[in-house]
Simulated scan of single mutants.
Amino acid sequence: MSAAFGPRLRALLTDRGMTLRGTARALNYNVAYISRVTNGRQRPSAQLAEALDELLQADGELVRLAAPVTPLESPEEPTGPASDIAHMKASAEHILRHADRYGGDAVAPVAVQLWLSAQRKLDAGEIPESAQRGYAAAVAEAAEVAGWLLFDSGDHVAARNAFLESHMLARHAGERAMEWFALDMLAMLDTECGRPGGVRRITDELLSQSRIPPRVALLARVRRGRALAQIGDRQRALTDLDAARGGVEESLSARDPKWAWWVNQQEIGGHSGHALLSLADLNAAILKFQSALEHATPRGVMLYRIELLHSYAKAKAWREAEEEIHEISPLLSTITSGRNRLLLRDALQVVDRASGVPVGLSALVRDTAATISL
Rank of each mutant, 00 (worst) to 15 (best):
S153T: 08
D155Y: 11
H156F: 09
V157F: 07
V157L: 12
V157K: 05
A158C: 04
R160S: 10
N161M: 10
F163R: 11
F163P: 02
L164Y: 11
L164R: 11
L164H: 11
S166P: 05
H167V: 04
L169R: 11
L169S: 05
L169T: 07
A170T: 07
A170I: 09
A173N: 05
G174Q: 09
G174T: 05
R176L: 13
R176Y: 08
A177Q: 14
M178D: 10
W180Q: 14
F181C: 07
A182H: 11
L183Q: 09
L183C: 08
L183P: 06
L183G: 02
D184G: 15
D184I: 13
M185E: 15
L186M: 09
L186S: 08
A187I: 04
M188H: 15
M188S: 15
M188R: 15
L189T: 09
E192W: 11
E192A: 15
E192F: 11
C193K: 12
R195V: 15
R195P: 04
P196N: 06
V199E: 06
R201G: 07
R201V: 13
I202W: 07
I202N: 12
T203N: 01
T203W: 02
D204V: 03
L206K: 08
L207R: 09
S208I: 01
S208K: 11
S208D: 15
S210L: 15
R211K: 08
I212C: 11
I212F: 09
P213E: 05
R215D: 03
V216A: 05
L218W: 04
R223G: 02
R224W: 01
R224T: 00
R224V: 03
G225A: 01
G225P: 00
A227H: 04
L228Y: 01
A229R: 06
Q230F: 01
G232R: 00
G232Q: 02
R234T: 05
A237V: 02
A237D: 00
A237M: 06
L238M: 15
D240S: 01
L241P: 06
L241F: 02
L241V: 00
A243Y: 08
A243P: 04
G246K: 01
G246Q: 09
V248E: 02
E249D: 12
E249K: 03
S251L: 00
S253N: 07
R255Q: 14
